[in-house]
């Protein structure tokens, strides 16, 4: 193992920061060490999705990314989506649906759903499944997670055209 000091600079949840790291340190390890503990260590081999973060807006496994790969990029963790006191929309629906069992998979699920909501405009089932196919819930509580996600997406979809109308109306 090398003792050479390396640094990596990236934007984390909107804030540009520089971290000391090693060439083979995983982004997940760095994030948890630096206090972003909402990002969970699950399988550590790119299967379960508990460590999902957004890299330039795209969902990625932080356990299969070297921290050095994040240089100059934008990283977002669950901490940017909601907190216990101010949960995000999907998080509120998860609670309302009773979808959270052990809770370990939830931050990853929320990050994948965030990528979906911020990238896509239409939320057909096929698209939703595609965005969520890399997140496992070992309590197997998929049904309620799906119900909560559907509710969140339907709300967002019905809000979107209205927002567009307002924008167009404002121009006139």
């Amino acid at each position: 193992m090398t003792t050479t000091t390396h640094t990596v600079t990236f934007t984390i949840n909107g804030e540009k920061k520089t971290f000391a790291t090693r060439p083979d340190e995983k982004l997940l390890t760095l994030l948890r060490r630096e206090g972003y503990r909402g990002t969970k260590y699950g399988c550590g081999q790119g299967t379960c999705g508990a460590c999902t973060v957004l890299l330039d807006g795209r969902a990625t496994y932080a356990c299969l990314l070297y921290a050095m790969q994040a240089e100059g990029r934008k990283v977002r963790t669950i901490e940017s989506v909601g907190t216990f006191d101010k949960p995000g929309e999907f998080q509120k629906e998860l609670v309302a649906a009773g979808a959270v069992q052990c809770g370990y998979c939830i931050p990853g699920m929320v990050m994948s759903a965030t990528a979906l909501m911020e990238t896509e405009e239409v939320f057909e089932d096929e698209i939703v499944k595609e965005y969520m196919d890399g997140n496992l819930c070992r309590c197997t509580g998929y049904e309620k997670i799906w119900v909560a996600l559907r509710k969140t997406l339907d709300k967002q979809a019905s809000a979107k055209p209205a927002a567009k109308k307002t924008a167009k109306g404002a121009k006139k």
Binding site: G46, T47, G49, T52, L55, R58, A59, T60, Y61, L64, L65, S112, E130, Y131, M132, D133, G134
Partner: peptide, 12 residues
Amino acid sequence: CRRISTHQIRNV
């Protein structure tokens, strides 16, 4: 490409 691995892997 849709059938390869998962969303998170396909992104990188």
